[in-house]
């Protein structure tokens, strides 16, 4: 496969999101702009300007009408995808590290940083998915994380729970209506921050990536660890590929350590693991900095990775990717065919 290199950012990538149809890619980086790209040929649709600080996070609503972004300038902004106009700005006391729309796009959650005497919080905002509509100023819900700050969070199926990953390696389940903590379980090694949380297509389970060099598949209902994927480098991101039962992990040594170790120790590769068997089945190299985010195309045709080196690489899978099955899977198919 020949990856498409997107060089729209001047600084390290923070997050990449595909829209539901898999034809648009949104990328954000520390250089204060959001880029929208066509996934099939890497053409840039446009850029969104207005943030005054590094942008940490972006998310697309399910109808691909608006996007939300969270930044180090302490705001969450809503943007019209088509025109690039900023529709709404919410201000917070500290930086916003993660935003996510719920399944029907009516609610938006934001994770705010713990800093300057403020505790880390998860806020929920009401959103109207309409470019011309007036957006509500008020927060619907604020969950304060007083023990360990939340680093990532997301909505479970039917917007029933809010699941948060914490800096101390634990995962919490909150009731999405009341904001009450249902339970908090230590999942990853103590004090190895959870760096990413991405959902399976049906949002009944999710994958977490952590600095403890593992990624775990966890159920939303009872936070049970289904699978563990062990790698040899701190992970920044993990995603579940649709169509094929794989997961993609991205990482590499921390950006601040890159210059202190030799390049061949970098391990700046996207690692593919089999979702069920937990085996590593291949790597894709290319970046020359740690991978900060990996995103799977919802149509299952490819994936994109964003790195500290400022590039987004969009990959379309070859035939060999689709053909790969385990021997036991092949036998099972044969049995079913008979």
């Amino acid at each position: 496969m020949r990856p498409i290199l997107l060089a729209g950012h001047e600084r390290a990538l923070a997050q990449i999101k595909y829209n539901v149809d898999g034809d648009l890619i949104f990328s954000v980086s520390k250089d204060q702009q959001i880029c929208a790209w066509f996934a099939h040929n890497g053409e840039r649709l446009g850029t969104y300007h207005g943030h005054q600080g590094a942008i940490w996070t972006v998310d697309v609503d399910p109808t691909s009408t608006i996007i939300a972004s969270g930044s180090a300038d302490n705001t969450i902004r809503l943007w019209d995808i088509k025109s690039g106009k900023c529709l709404k700005t919410w201000e917070f006391p500290t930086a916003v590290k993660r935003v996510e729309f719920n399944e029907d796009g009516t609610k938006l959650l934001g994770v705010t940083e713990k800093r300057m005497g403020h505790l880390g919080t998860i806020v929920v905002l009401d959103v109207v998915v309409d470019v011309n509509a007036e957006q509500n100023d008020e927060k619907v819900l604020t969950i304060v994380c007083d023990e360990s700050k939340a680093t990532v969070a997301g909505w479970s199926y039917l917007s029933k729970y809010i699941i948060a990953g914490h800096e101390d390696g634990s995962v919490s389940q909150y009731d999405a209506k009341t904001g009450d903590l249902n339970f908090n379980i230590a999942i990853h090694e103590l004090d190895c921050a959870i760096t990413d949380l991405q959902w399976a297509p049906d949002r009944t389970y999710f994958i977490t990536a952590s600095k403890d060099k593992t990624a775990k598949l966890i159920t939303a209902d009872d936070l049970r660890v289904l699978k563990t994927y062990v790698s040899d480098t701190p992970l920044n991101s993990a995603t579940i590929t649709p169509k094929k039962d794989f997961v993609v992990l991205g990482g590499g040594q921390a950006a601040m350590d890159v210059t202190r170790t030799s390049a061949r120790q970098g391990k700046f590769e996207a690692r593919f693991y089999h979702k069920i068997f937990e085996d590593e089945i291949g790597r894709v190299r290319g970046h020359f900095g740690p991978l900060n985010y990996v995103a799977a195309d919802p149509t299952g045709k490819g994936y994109a990775s964003g790195s500290e080196d400022g590039y987004v690489r969009v990959h379309q899978f070859d035939k060999g990717y689709y053909d790969f099955v385990y021997e036991v899977e092949r036998e099972r198919q044969r049995e079913l065919a008979v």
């Binding site: 496969m1 290199l5 997107l6 060089a7 890497g42 840039r44 190299r285």
Partner: peptide, 8 residues
């Protein structure tokens, strides 16, 4: 902004 990488 857009280029094609080497074949992998």
């Amino acid at each position: 902004t857009t280029s094609v990488g080497e074949n992998i």
